[in-house]
Simulated assay, not measured.
Amino acid sequence: MLSIGEFSKICEVSTKTLRYYDEIGLITPDEINPENGYRYYSIGQLKKMLLINRLKSYHFSLEEIKAVMEMEEDQAEEKLCSALNRKKRDIQDKLLALEHTLKQMSSDILNLEKGIPIMSYIDKIEVQLVETRPLNILYVRQMMNSGGYIAGYGKYFNDIYGKIATEKLTMLGTPMTIYHSPEFNPAGNDTEFAIPVEESVKGTRDFPGGLCAMSVLKGPYSELTSVYAKLREWVENESYELVRSPYEVYITDPNQCAVQEEIVTEVYFPVKKK
């Protein structure tokens, strides 16, 4: 048996953390001396603690780690492999985002060294006035919190694609998202995921066409806020006003793009002259 001090030293985990893990049922001492309360861990628990440390290094939360520890033995390896693959994809997405951030920082540094203002790139965003046609869209409308969009895009668009396949509907365009909330709310925003289809069935609705200020983003979705800022500025300067909710049309599938710079998104602001 190992004392809590020996166990913490070998595994490089503080005794305070070990006591907390005991409280939440993540890893409990094999023995507690009833007279003095000293905690002892078995040699066999070293592997369990090292697994906890490894999963933490993979950015698993304590709740996720506890779920892994409580898996049925006959399913544990398969479920752990699935969980690791999800975390791997998450980390790859974060790496791509960090790579883009580094490129952006390098570009900003070069521009500043040349005397070019850091926000001058917004002036290069082009805005067009276009007339859009009415559409028939198959849609799912949900309240989405700020942290749920990535998962939401996958889930709800997959649901729509599934219905299109099941009911053998004819797609007439690429996926789009309509943002109905009048202001941003981290707790939840009224969001509609949709794909244009030919047939009018349950779950479809008319989406009106009309005059729109439109801009095209070629790059990662993180840059969309700049496009929205430019469009709003253009609408104000050109004496137009918004008449309906803004929306995005995804021209490319991000899963099919080798680099984020290849992603193409169109942003539309329905407008009318003041």
Rank of each mutant, 00 (worst) to 15 (best):
A213S: 04
R141K: 10
E238D: 10
K88P: 00
F7A: 00
Y161V: 05
M69I: 04
Q256P: 00
G115N: 05
L224F: 08
A67T: 10
F193W: 05
L46Q: 01
Y40N: 00
L172S: 06
F60G: 02
G148N: 11
D253E: 13
G162Y: 06
Y240N: 01
P220C: 07
Y20Q: 07
E113T: 07
M176V: 06
L62H: 02
Y153F: 14
T101S: 13
C81S: 12
T166K: 14
A187E: 15
Y179A: 03
Y20S: 04
L18T: 02
D74R: 07
D159F: 12
R19G: 03
K163I: 13
A194C: 14
E35I: 12
I125D: 03
K274G: 04
I4R: 03
S239W: 08
S181P: 05
R232N: 09
E73L: 08
L242T: 09
A76C: 11
I116V: 15
S106D: 15
Q260F: 08
G154F: 13
V140T: 11
S146R: 06
D253Q: 09
V235M: 12
T204R: 00
E236R: 14
A76D: 09
P134I: 05
V235P: 00
G162M: 04
Y40R: 01
E192M: 09
G173M: 07
N255H: 12
E238W: 05
R244T: 11
K47C: 01
G5H: 05
F269I: 01
R89F: 05
E199W: 10
D22S: 04
R54H: 13
V259L: 10
K66R: 14
D22H: 15
V243F: 10
L95R: 10
I251T: 04
S14H: 06
D159S: 12
F184A: 08
D74H: 10
G219K: 02
E248M: 07
K124E: 14
K202V: 15
N255I: 04
E262C: 09
E233R: 12
L217G: 01
S222K: 12
I109M: 11
S226D: 13
E131G: 07
K79T: 11
Q45R: 05
